[in-house]
Amino acid sequence: MKKYILQSIRLTAVLLILLCVIYPVILAAAGRFSKGEGGGEKVISKGKVVGYALIGQSFTDPRYFWGRPSAVGYNAAGSAGSNKGPSNEDYLKQVADRIDTLQKYNPGLKKADIPADMVTASGSGLDPAISPQGAIIQIKRVASYRKLDESKVAELVAAHTSGPLWGLFGPSTVSVLQLNLALDQLSQTAANQHQ
């Protein structure tokens, strides 16, 4: 028994060095060569960091495309889903309110055209994407608030829609942050042309 205790302690010490020092340091060294140099890929606009490529952020201004509801208000120092059960009455009322808000800001929007992702909270609370349909239903609003051509905005949405992996696997998505940055650029170009 005493033999096992000593062996256990010594083996633990050796493995701590192998698994908790050498292993992560190898990955950290390799990670320096990834896009974000191991610290997460940042999105830079006009010389300033305005976000992380993978992390969704809150958009509430009607001039921007909105992302999904978030249980943590897109606070990236934490992360969580709503954990609401499917039959919870309070939850169902919350979803009904979200539908009303969408219809208020997007006049003429039919309920049957609202995709589920626009009125349900994501798992992480930091979902960077919406479905293509979720973007399409907002085109009219965004174009009218920005006085842009609807077709131009629709083109932008199409250009920022990523298809399934290798065209074969998984869903299509739209990155809300990238789309909105491109949208700001489009408004800027339009304003310059008017001058």
Binding site: P86, S87, A96, A116, D117, D127, P171
Partner: peptide
């Protein structure tokens, strides 16, 4: 999809989305 949300009239084309991420579906 969630039958309770279907009653609210929205479209659940790909299925239930509460707690799920769009990039996975």
């Amino acid at each position: 999809g969630n039958p309770a949300l279907a009653k609210l009239g929205i479209s659940q084309q790909t299925g239930a989305m509460e707690g799920k991420e769009v990039r996975f579906g």
